[in-house]
Simulated assay, not measured.
Amino acid sequence: MNDSHPARLRADRVRLGYKGNTISDQLSVDIPDEKFTVIIGPNACGKSTLLRALARLLTPEAGTVLLDDKPVTDYPAKELARRVGLLPQSSTAPDGIRVADLVARGRYPHQTMLRQWSRADEEAVAAAMAATGVTELSARPVEQLSGGQRQRVWISMVLAQQTPIILLDEPTTYLDIAYQIQLLDLCRSLNRDSGRTVVAVLHDLNHAFRYADHLIAMRDGRVVACGEPAEIVTAELVREVFALRCRIVADPETGTPLVIPLAENAAQVH
């Protein structure tokens, strides 16, 4: 890992699971600071579980999640929410809430007895909605929106939080291809232009390989490989992680690894 980008956020030998069902054990992961990290892996391999632990929504049964060398459990809730923002896999909005009001909830961690709603909050909300293309929806009830529109509103709320670390669990869900690319371009610009650390769980491998500075490949609750996509992505890695036979070629637009599934994969399904 590049020493100029040490890991502010990391999991140290954690055991993660639900109701006695262990998903990961002795799992250690470093999230390099000021990088765009993408986590990939098959369904139920522990990607979302790891993200929930990094955001303190799930307490490890053993081991520790650390932020700036301090256990995340030691931070007051509002302080942690000013440092780490999370878009979970699924979210439910209160009945009847308008888009602008939901996005404004991202500013809650910044409110105190001495600091109430301010012009800075208004500007943060407006900028977040503009970045995700939902400004024109600001007065609409969230429940009346399509799945893709709602997803962009939830992303707006996380952006309005203005945290230096952003965790996104399958952020491209429900989005059509144009908005998927727009969102991933936005994530990259947040990383490169404002130095934010962005972590996303993605299912589309070619999106992951094109956008990630740092890639974490998981299977069965463990990390199979991590590093820059150009250095670690091989046909053998894709086969090991996803049981998919493929060719890896250079993306003609970016030169990043591009997955071409072999035709025999489709033949075996029929």
Rank of each mutant, 00 (worst) to 15 (best):
S28W: 06
G85D: 04
R192A: 11
G63H: 13
V259E: 11
F209E: 06
L80E: 04
T92I: 09
V158T: 11
S4R: 14
Q111M: 15
N206G: 05
G46V: 04
L57P: 02
A250R: 14
D169R: 09
D121T: 06
I232S: 05
T163Q: 08
Y18K: 08
G255L: 01
D95K: 15
V134Q: 02
N191R: 13
D213C: 05
A178E: 14
A217D: 04
Q162C: 14
T254N: 04
G96L: 08
S189L: 06
Y211M: 03
I177V: 10
D121P: 00
G227W: 12
P94A: 09
G20D: 02
K35H: 14
K35A: 12
F242D: 11
Q144K: 12
A243E: 15
R52N: 12
R152W: 09
T132Y: 07
V99Y: 10
Q151D: 02
R105E: 10
A267Y: 10
Y211D: 06
S146R: 01
T135C: 06
S91I: 13
I216C: 00
W154H: 11
P76H: 13
A225T: 09
L102V: 06
Q151N: 03
G106M: 06
G227A: 06
Q111E: 13
V84G: 05
L102K: 03
L54A: 01
A127P: 02
S28V: 07
Q116H: 15
I216L: 00
Y75T: 08
T22F: 04
R52Q: 13
G227K: 01
T234V: 12
T112D: 03
V198I: 05
D121Q: 08
T49S: 01
L258E: 12
I177A: 13
E240C: 07
P171E: 11
R10N: 00
